[in-house]
């Protein structure tokens, strides 16, 4: 087998079953060095399970994976040495001070005191916590906690970094700062594997895997994925009673998909001339008040919903 050593992450038919439930279903992909590889999908899609298998803390039921050239099944201890992992809740010890947390995590990764001192200052800088060393971690705002957690995770400068929904529960500005840090790490050659269910965050990734129901249903750069929707036109509609309006439109043969999008909803159609006008007419006929019908650039969410629906249709056809 070639490629295990050239690529930081190689995954082949990786499967995890919990009893009868298949959490991850024969997933395969390769991550290049220095990439920001995103796993996008709703909760329960198998993103965290995949990450935990790659980190060597969950044994795969089937398939193989190599991280940093090491087999996650046979050499989990070697894998652990070359990765940093930040789990969903940025698990720091809230009853320890900022500095004590850094010392602890540096210690368990075996950093000697000189290097620890250097890295500690670096971590304090990226977290914006210089001068706050003696503050209890539990008292920090969540954005700072999250950056400190990232600092703790990469104190030992791992070449591969796993981030499991790193920004859940963090304010938009902190999320922005966080992503700037991720970019910087990636520029310096760190391979970043990140899971998220925020579509806007997914746009930041070099490449994306879409996870749904334990399966990898699409893989590509954000631009490539959006091309899946070429031939489709997406309209953003704002009206009264959007859920009912979506139902009415969905019943129309020429409407491909509808999905909620904030207070508005998206309607995608394939090769329908003057679709905007048609949408307007139907909604007005059914007594909805329309505020806006506008052509829009397809978002990743549209791509995601499109892919999921196709996936379900296909599996429906193959099963019946």
């Amino acid at each position: 087998m070639i490629g295990h050593f050239e690529h930081p992450i190689v995954v082949r038919s990786l499967t995890k079953k919990f009893g009868l439930f298949v959490a991850v279903d024969s997933v395969s992909f390769v991550v290049e060095k220095g990439e920001i590889f995103g796993f996008l999908g709703p909760n329960g899609a198998g993103k965290s399970t995949t990450i935990r298998m790659l980190c060597g803390i969950l044994e795969p039921t089937d398939g193989n994976a190599w991280v940093g050239g090491f087999d996650v099944r046979r050499e989990p201890d070697e894998v652990k040495k070359c990765i940093g992992y930040m789990s969903q809740r940025f698990s720091l010890y809230e009853d320890l001070t900022v500095e004590q947390n850094l010392i602890f995590f540096g210690g368990i990764y075996g950093l000697e005191s000189e290097r620890l001192e250097v890295r500690k200052h670096w971590a304090l800088d990226i977290a914006g916590l210089r001068g706050q060393e003696k503050v209890l971690t539990g008292e920090l705002p969540s954005g700072w906690k999250q950056r400190l957690a990232l600092g703790c995770t990469i104190l030992h400068e791992p070449p591969i970094l796993f981030l499991d929904e790193p920004t859940s529960g963090v304010d938009p500005i902190s999320r922005r700062i966080f992503w700037d840090l991720i970019y910087e790490l990636s520029n310096q050659g760190t391979t970043v594997f990140v899971t998220t269910h925020y579509m806007d965050e997914a746009e930041h990734c070099t490449r994306l895997g879409l996870m749904y129901g334990g399966k990898l249903i699409a893989l590509g750069t954000p631009t490539e994925l959006k091309q899946k929707l070429s031939g489709y036109t997406v309209y953003e509609v704002e009206s009264t009673q959007p859920l009912e309006a979506m139902e009415v439109l969905q019943a129309e043969e020429w409407v491909a998909e509808t999905s909620m999008f904030g207070t508005a909803f998206h309607v995608s159609v394939q090769n329908v001339p003057r679709a905007g006008l048609k949408i307007r007419k139907i909604l007005e006929k059914n007594g909805f008040e329309i505020r806006k019908v506008e052509k829009t650039i397809p978002s990743l969410e549209d791509v995601f919903i499109h892919t999921v629906l196709h996936q379900e249709q296909n599996s429906f056809h193959t099963e019946s």
């Binding site: 980190c55 060597g56 803390i57 201890d77 652990k80 040495k81 990765i83 992992y85 789990s87 969903q88 809740r89 698990s91 720091l92 010890y93 809230e94 995590f105 368990i108 990764y109 075996g110």
Partner: peptide, 14 residues
């Protein structure tokens, strides 16, 4: 409960 165990498990710590 706090999730720190997860962090300890990925560390090179037996």
């Amino acid at each position: 409960e706090l999730g720190t165990m997860e962090q300890l498990l990925v560390a090179p710590l037996s």
